[in-house]
């Protein structure tokens, strides 16, 4: 839920500049998968702060609970049991949720002016009051994050606690994390913090440890430290090189302007054909 703001970098379905006199520091949340213990305190903090409660579900045989993101669960711990090397099982736990892309596919796809905004601090926020429930954000998202509520037909996702961040607080999940696996600060600071973690992991034998800040979407404002940064897919299908899908680019980048201009041209062509050639009237005089 977006607040009125003076630091809007981009606004869905809007071509003129949005209020942007205020420049804010670029922020990021860093999730260190190697220190996450899967306690789900972040899930609880998220639902408490945002005051949303998911339905009590059923056990589906894995630790993921709820089994997927929903309109009420904006973050879900994804548990993957992976044999990275033969005989060496690793339990990889990834906190899933909106990545807050610098180039958000949801915002690009959204047809409703102002339903999705991106602040200059990097947070991508849904303004549900303007949401029309078309689901185009789902189509546009490279990470499969937004969910449409069955109750009100609006799309919901992690807001990176934009309301807390706006008043200088860290997101609720960060505040609650008992191991310090989730940290929050300026994006530059978070990259430096990640560098130290990666050095530590490499010393411990994780030679492919690295930062997940995918350039295909312009970088993200939620980043991961991965023990196996060469294989992000093993973390419950985290995409290796996420981009706005070519279909979405074709649809919103090429087809949209071309077709709208095309229809305008067809209308003009018709009008000027009439003006220049004139109507096609029956030539033959009616005889009796």
């Amino acid at each position: 839920m977006a607040l009125q703001s003076l630091d809007i970098k981009a606004r869905s379905a809007t071509t003129t500049p949005s209020p942007s006199v205020r420049e804010t520091l670029k922020v990021a949340k860093l999730i260190d998968i190697s220190t996450c213990i899967g306690c789900k305190a972040c899930q609880v903090a998220c639902m408490e702060w945002n005051d949303v409660r998911d339905k009590i579900g059923t056990n589906v045989g894995v630790y993921d609970n709820p089994p997927d993101l929903t309109e009420d669960s904006w973050t879900v711990m994804r548990f993957s049991e992976v044999e990275v090397q033969a005989g060496k099982l690793e339990w990889l736990i990834r906190k899933d949720g909106c990545m807050h892309c610098a180039e958000p596919g949801c915002l690009k796809a959204c047809p409703s002016p102002g339903a999705i905004v991106q602040y200059s601090n990097g947070i991508v926020d849904f303004h549900e009051e303007h949401c029309i429930g078309c689901g185009y954000c789902i189509t546009g998202c490279p990470f499969n994050i937004p969910r449409i509520s069955k109750k009100d037909g609006k799309a919901y996702k992690c807001s990176l606690c934009s309301d807390r961040v706006a008043v200088g607080l860290e997101p609720a999940c960060v505040k609650t994390c008992p191991t310090g696996a989730i940290v929050f600060g300026s994006k530059d600071d978070m990259i430096r913090h990640a560098d130290l973690r990666i050095i530590d992991l490499k010393q411990r034998g994780y030679s492919n440890a690295g930062l997940y800040d995918p350039p295909g979407v312009g970088g993200t404002h939620v980043m991961y430290v991965l023990q196996h940064a060469d294989m992000p897919e093993i973390y419950h299908g985290l995409p290796k090189n996420p981009t706005i899908n070519p279909m979405v680019s074709l649809w919103k980048g090429i087809a949209k302007p071309l077709m709208s201009w095309g229809l305008g041209l067809v209308a003009l062509a018709g009008f000027f054909h009439y003006v220049t050639v004139g109507p096609n009237e029956v030539k033959e005089e009616e005889e009796t």
Binding site: G135, I138, T139, I148, M247, V248, L250, W251, A255, M259
Partner: peptide, 23 residues
């Protein structure tokens, strides 16, 4: 079609359908 049918299809198919629908 949201919310009736779209949730039953993969995002890949959804994207293709959206482009084809527009074209």
């Amino acid at each position: 079609w949201q919310p009736w049918f779209a949730p039953y299809f993969s995002i890949g198919l959804l994207r293709l359908a959206t482009v084809v629908h527009a074209l």
